[in-house]
Amino acid sequence: MSLFRGSLTYARFFVDPALSEPTTGNFADRFLEKLAAHPFEPLDPEGEAAERIGWCRVGEPFETSFIYEDLFFNEFMNIGFRLDRWVVPPSLLKAKTREAETAYLAKKGRERLTKKEKAELKDMVAKKLRKQLAPTTRIVDLSWSLNDGIVRFFTHSTSVGAAMSELFRTTFGVTLVPEAPYTTAARLGLTADEETAWADLEPTILVTEETAPRERGAR
């Protein structure tokens, strides 16, 4: 499922127009600069980071340089969000850590490990295993409709949506509001009375004591 082919599954986020970058003047150059400051950078097996996020081109996860033609489609700005994560199979990590612990104890001529030693060995084994594995990669298309302040993010995953929102805020200085019954209602415009009514809303009860016996009687 992507921006350019197949069916579309996406979550919408609203951009407060007051907080949004004005799309006048050389806004495209500014956006390109901001994206260039937050490109996706691959995970380092020796590094401390367990996951990494960044921007890439739509449909080209390894392409992290941005040019106007690939990004802007009239009033839309299209980018790829990439999230890489180290996923070492727990059973493999456990077995290899035990092996390393046994070897360490034999070398030191001891019977027990300290808590710190255990943690260090586990970390060392995890880093070693990362060199033999590829990180899991997730790429999600994003389309920012600059005229109406809507970001369409092509997944329903709330955790990936939250990671993207954070990167979006860091990159563009804009806070995204996820679509929900209230945020959509507020965007459509609620009067003061309706705001009060919203705060007092209770779920509608469809089956009452009066209707329930009639239902049972009908069966």
Binding site: S7, L8, T9, Y10, A11, R12, H156, P178, A180, T184
Partner: peptide, 13 residues
């Protein structure tokens, strides 16, 4: 349509 998020999915055009 996912009710609680008002999110669209599998939109075929």
């Amino acid at each position: 349509l996912k009710a609680e998020a008002l999110a669209l999915g599998a939109l075929t055009l």
